[in-house]
Computed example of a mutant assay.
Amino acid sequence: MAKDFYGDLRLGILGGGQLGRMLIQEAINYNVNIHVLDPDPNAPCKKLCNQFEVGSLSDYDTVYNFGKDLDMITIEIEKVNVDALEALEEEGVIVYPQSRVIRLIQDKGLQKQFFKQNDIPTSAFQFVSNREGLGNCHIQLPYIQKMRKDGYDGKGVKKISTAADFEHAFDEPSIVEELVNFEKEIAVIVARNDRGEMSTFPMVEMEFNPQANLVEFLIAPSTYSFDIQSKAESIAKKIANDLQIVGLLAVEMFLTADGDILVNELAPRPHNSGHQTIEGNYTSQFGQHLRAIFNLPLGNTESRSNAIMINLLGEDGYEGLARYEGLEEALAMDGVYVHLYGKKYTKPFRKMGHVTIVNPDRSLAIENARKIQSLIKVIA
């Protein structure tokens, strides 16, 4: 790269939410010049970057004009105009993750085909073009229906239990997936730089909010056997290598009762399953993403302590200017780190922040996390 990453390099981030905010907090240490594009004039990144632009991430001209004078572009959300990114790449702007990777991951159907073509273990699946196609599926009920595009944070996913559910199913191109009887949802984040060097963060275990289908509680590192963790990390590395991605890749997986691992979905960016790395690991996922896209040596991903991450979601029944209950009491406890995302307004199940609880005693870390979960409430 002609420009030094620690001086005059202009880095654009598509998306100004909490992931961009935490990426900027890390990038400040490298003195990088940060430009952000987001449709929300009050986005969490607004006051932290060198230049903030309000505009659509899906509009070709907006994305192209935002990026044409930058040296490098990265993303914090996949729903961006890939055609504009391809044009920018052709003109010499570095885009990491690459536009072809973003295009594949934008479409869960293409993801599934990629898994099948590359012998990556995943659940059985079938494509349908609308809800009428559900009646002709060879996948047995009950099953999961996922919209191929535009699903995120639990949206765009439905469980179809009986034929009576067809009426309320998605009426657009979807994947029908076999319902996996899993023991635990797990994730591995892998980083890969342009030299092909790869490094994984230790496998984490996740618990989901049943109403919002969002990660609510995350435990790191995992206590599953070395064989299971090694297998999960090997799968993540294989996917990153097959994609030839530059940057971070979060690989969400199911662990079955038989010890099989099935890949669920991919995210080519910092991810909710890596927030605990800020306090819990020698290198955070945000620091590692920057190292990867700047083609620097990858950092040490070892855990420094047991770390539990809790998402702070907007309470059901509250919508409006956000208020936080229980923060003082939570911060009086040892090993508690609060991250508020700077979102002005709350609504039910909106991600408003996260808390990481670290403790050398794993059971005590989990116990304290459960206390925090009941203490802090995001209301209006």
Rank of each mutant, 00 (worst) to 15 (best):
F5K: 10
L57P: 00
I235Y: 12
N359D: 15
D119P: 01
P39T: 01
Q126P: 04
A267M: 05
K108A: 08
E319H: 09
D361M: 03
L290P: 00
L134A: 05
S222H: 05
F226A: 14
I120R: 04
M147C: 12
A220M: 10
N65R: 11
E178D: 11
M352N: 05
C137G: 10
S284D: 08
D361N: 12
A365V: 02
Q229V: 05
A332D: 12
Y318K: 12
A87S: 15
T356F: 09
R10E: 15
I379Q: 13
Y341C: 08
S129T: 14
G326K: 02
Q276Y: 15
F170C: 03
G133V: 04
D242E: 15
A292W: 02
T346H: 10
V157R: 03
G247I: 04
V215D: 12
I94N: 14
I24N: 06
R103V: 10
F294Q: 02
T346D: 05
M198H: 07
V101D: 03
A250L: 08
A257S: 15
A187L: 07
M253K: 00
D316R: 14
E302T: 12
T346C: 12
I379V: 15
G17P: 00
E86M: 12
V215K: 05
Y324G: 00
D59C: 11
A87L: 14
G92I: 13
Q18N: 06
G196P: 00
Q25S: 13
D258W: 04
L248Y: 07
E185F: 06
T283L: 10
P173F: 05
N136S: 15
P221T: 00
V176F: 03
G247E: 05
S234D: 14
E279W: 07
G92V: 08
L57M: 07
L364A: 13
S123N: 13
E205M: 04
